[in-house]
Amino acid sequence: MAQSNWGRKVMAAQGYMAHRRQIEVGLWTLFFSVQWLAQFAVASLENRDGDRGFQSWEFLVWEGSSILMLALLLPLLLAWDRHFPLQKGVVGRNLAIHLLLTLPWSLLHVVGMVAMRTAIYHLEGGSYNFGHWPAELFYEYLKDFRTYCLLLGIIYLYRFLLVQLQRKTHLPGRPEVGEPAAPVKRPERFLVKKLGKEFLVNVQDIEWVEAAGNYVNLHLSGRVYPLRDTMAKLLDRLDPDSFVRVHRSYIVRLNFIAEIEPLESGDARIHLENGQQIPVSRRYRDQLRAQVAPA
């Protein structure tokens, strides 16, 4: 029974991943719709006596234009996060960049929603007055700063949950019973030289590897260590249960893979847990699938 329940959970998780993009669009649409209705309800209750001289449709337009602009700006926020991910080694620098990006984010939000409101009021035969721009911009920025942080937090929380779901769908089956294979001795660490110094790099800390001429760059926790080696020779020295080659120029540690995104070209793209994206060529795609989800 427990195995059956586990199987149903895995099938449900695989179903979610198969329709992930459509579900994500639906969830974001639901999120912004609820925000719109909730803010409209609050504004209407505050004006339930009509003593402020505004009509209900005006609150609907105000809140709707604001929420719609936030929805339109969401892809921009995602693009900024791809360029400045909050990952180990660069979190401080990129967090400061995100704080600066709240300024153009707020400005775009305000300009866009004011343009929408002005157009709608014009169609109604009236005019829209945003108020004193310096004061209103500062007021809107305080709200937009909070919203930016909220959306970014939701994105990272969702990615964390997605990683857990991805792991659930790719759990390897039980190993077959048989004679144990002879253990293969593999290095636990590499000695690399960088900036005139020598460093010991633990193999278990390597997240991904990139070819660089006569060297390979070992990436771990936002740092890069060059090792004089070829991709083929390095792969022979790495544990095949932990590392997989996905491109002639890239090797990835399996435990750091958060998502495999298929592309229309037949290639794919790997999203690591730290937000890094790695290309997967068609030549290595089947091998990747076999190692991620062995039969």
Rank of each mutant, 00 (worst) to 15 (best):
L60G: 15
Y148R: 03
A212V: 01
R283V: 01
E124F: 05
W105E: 06
F199N: 00
E63D: 08
L234I: 07
Q55K: 13
L254D: 02
A232G: 02
P262R: 03
L123R: 14
D205T: 06
V42P: 05
E46W: 14
N129S: 13
R21K: 13
Y121N: 14
T118K: 11
Y148M: 04
A182K: 15
V25A: 04
V184E: 05
E198A: 14
K88I: 01
Y128F: 15
D144C: 06
L157W: 12
S281D: 03
K88L: 12
R285K: 15
I270T: 02
Q204P: 03
R245T: 01
V34W: 07
R248C: 11
V224Q: 13
G266V: 08
L107N: 02
G131L: 12
L107C: 05
Q22S: 08
N202L: 04
R186C: 01
L263V: 03
R237D: 12
R186D: 00
L107W: 14
F138Y: 14
W57P: 04
T118H: 07
D229Q: 14
H109F: 15
G112E: 05
D144S: 12
V90P: 00
L27D: 08
G7C: 05
T169C: 14
N274W: 07
A18T: 10
A119W: 11
A71V: 09
S242Y: 00
A2P: 10
Y128V: 08
R167P: 04
G153P: 04
A96H: 06
Q276E: 13
V90D: 05
S265F: 10
E63Y: 09
H122M: 05
R289G: 01
L99D: 07
L37Y: 04
W208F: 10
I155S: 02
E261S: 06
V110E: 01
H122E: 13
R8L: 14
V184L: 11
L123S: 06
L200G: 04
T29Y: 09
E63L: 05
F160R: 10
Q276M: 11
Y141I: 12
A79H: 13
R82S: 13
L263A: 09
Y284A: 00
K194M: 12
G275M: 06
L220E: 00
F243E: 01
R289F: 02
K193T: 11
R283K: 12
R285Q: 15
N202G: 02
W6D: 10
V114E: 14
E273A: 14
A12F: 07
R159E: 13
A13T: 09
L99R: 07
R48S: 10
D236M: 02
I154Q: 05
P183S: 04
G89N: 03
H219F: 04
A119F: 15
D239E: 07
R8C: 05
R174Q: 15
V252A: 00
L161I: 05
I97M: 09
Y121I: 09
A96W: 09
L27Y: 06
A295F: 13
L218W: 02
M1N: 12
L165K: 11
T230W: 04
R82K: 11
V209F: 00
G213H: 00
T102H: 06
L200D: 06
L227A: 03
R282S: 08
M231P: 02
S4F: 11
T147N: 10
I97S: 05
K168V: 04
